[in-house]
Amino acid sequence: MVRLPLTQDEVARGQRIGALLRQARGARSMLEVSLAAGISPETLRKIESGRIATPAFSTVAGIAATLDLSLDQLWGEASQDRAGAMATGAG
């Protein structure tokens, strides 16, 4: 199976979601959060840095639950950034 290249919007969305998760993690260690979410620290690192632009829904849901962050809130904030970029012509 051939995977199509990601669009600029998909890459940007992944970076925004990663940044939001990193912000929500706060002072908690990457190891603590990743173990609680059932993923490896390296996976969390890649998501937070935007290197995994399209993480699996279940992975994001597990991290969000660990951080007491609603998926609605996460998606809303990630989409709001995109809407702001579109309103200013940056998107």
Rank of each mutant, 00 (worst) to 15 (best):
V2Q: 09
V2A: 12
R3N: 14
L4S: 14
L4G: 02
L6T: 03
L6F: 14
L6G: 08
T7K: 06
T7L: 15
E10A: 13
V11S: 05
V11P: 00
A12W: 14
A12N: 13
G14S: 00
G14W: 00
Q15I: 07
Q15L: 14
R16V: 14
R16I: 07
R16N: 10
I17G: 02
I17F: 04
I17N: 01
A19P: 03
A19L: 03
A19V: 13
L20S: 00
L20G: 04
L21A: 07
R22C: 02
R22L: 10
R22Y: 02
Q23M: 08
Q23Y: 02
A24K: 07
R25T: 10
R25D: 00
G26F: 08
A27N: 13
R28V: 00
R28H: 14
R28W: 06
S29Y: 04
M30W: 09
M30Q: 08
L31G: 10
L31D: 12
V33R: 01
V33Y: 08
V33G: 01
S34C: 09
S34T: 12
S34N: 03
S34H: 04
L35Q: 15
A36N: 12
A37L: 03
A37Y: 09
A37K: 01
I39L: 06
I39S: 11
S40T: 10
S40D: 07
S40G: 11
S40C: 13
P41A: 03
E42A: 12
L44K: 01
R45Y: 11
R45F: 05
R45L: 02
R45D: 14
I47L: 06
I47E: 11
E48D: 01
E48Q: 12
S49E: 13
G50A: 10
R51T: 08
I52T: 12
I52A: 06
I52P: 09
T54M: 07
T54I: 02
P55Y: 09
A56R: 12
A56C: 06
F57C: 10
S58Y: 09
S58E: 15
V60G: 04
A61F: 01
A61D: 10
G62E: 01
A64V: 03
A65Y: 01
A65E: 14
T66K: 02
T66M: 13
L67T: 14
L67F: 10
L67N: 13
D68Q: 15
D68M: 11
D68N: 06
D68R: 15
L69V: 05
L69F: 08
L69C: 03
S70T: 12
S70L: 06
L71T: 13
L71R: 01
L71H: 11
Q73T: 15
L74H: 11
W75C: 12
W75T: 14
G76R: 09
E77R: 05
A78G: 14
S79M: 07
S79C: 11
Q80I: 08
Q80A: 11
Q80Y: 13
D81Q: 13
D81I: 12
A83E: 14
A83Q: 04
G84N: 10
G84Y: 01
A85S: 02
A85D: 13
A85M: 05
M86R: 07
A87E: 13
A87T: 09
T88I: 07
T88H: 15
G89E: 02
G89S: 06
G91R: 07
G91A: 15
